[in-house]
């Protein structure tokens, strides 16, 4: 199989780190409101977006995830006061690191989605799924398979 070739029936796999207080609740609200989005995302609950160690993101890319989204409370609304400010800084650094190692930095995204923003959650998931689909499978950093 050539490196460029995209396998048949390939579907992007996207990992979403959702903070317990805002984005996880926003995703719950999207469900309650029956807002549909593609089933490509897997939500992993963390207490705060500031809990997401860049190591987790690297590991996800190594294991073959095609995209990673870290989502938390809006700046200034963090349940833990300052957690998302750390996320914001790490996100910018992380994108530069990914670019340096040859991964499209757009595969890693950070978004602010509050507990009342079900429609925004749907829109973000739709958008990211389409973007990652357009980029094709992540072949860099993947462990030998």
């Amino acid at each position: 199989m050539s490196v460029k070739e995209i396998p048949q029936n390939w579907e992007p796999k996207i990992l979403v780190f959702a903070c317990n207080w805002c984005t996880y609740a926003g995703a719950d609200l999207a469900g309650l409101s029956r807002l549909q989005y593609p089933p490509n995302i897997r939500i992993l609950r963390v207490p705060c977006s500031g809990r997401v160690n860049p190591q987790f993101v690297i590991r996800a890319f190594q294991r073959g995830v095609d995209g990673v989204l870290v989502a938390g409370c809006h700046p200034g609304d963090c349940h833990y006061v300052t957690g998302n400010y750390f996320t914001r800084r790490r996100y910018l650094l992380m994108q530069r690191l990914l670019q340096y190692v040859g991964i499209d930095p757009e595969r890693f995204q950070a978004r602010w989605i509050s507990g009342s923003e079900g429609p925004k959650f749907q829109q973000v998931v739709n958008q990211i799924t389409e973007e990652i689909r357009a980029m094709g499978p992540n072949r860099k950093l993947r462990d030998a398979q």
């Binding site: 796999k13 990992l15 897997r42 992993l44 963390v46 809990r51 160690n53 590991r59 996800a60 995830v65």
Partner: peptide, 17 residues
């Protein structure tokens, strides 16, 4: 962090893939 340890989160990431 208890209950959300590095090992637990990494195990979830691994299981997903």
């Amino acid at each position: 962090l208890k209950h959300f340890t590095n090992e637990q989160i990494l195990a979830e990431v691994d299981a997903l893939c």
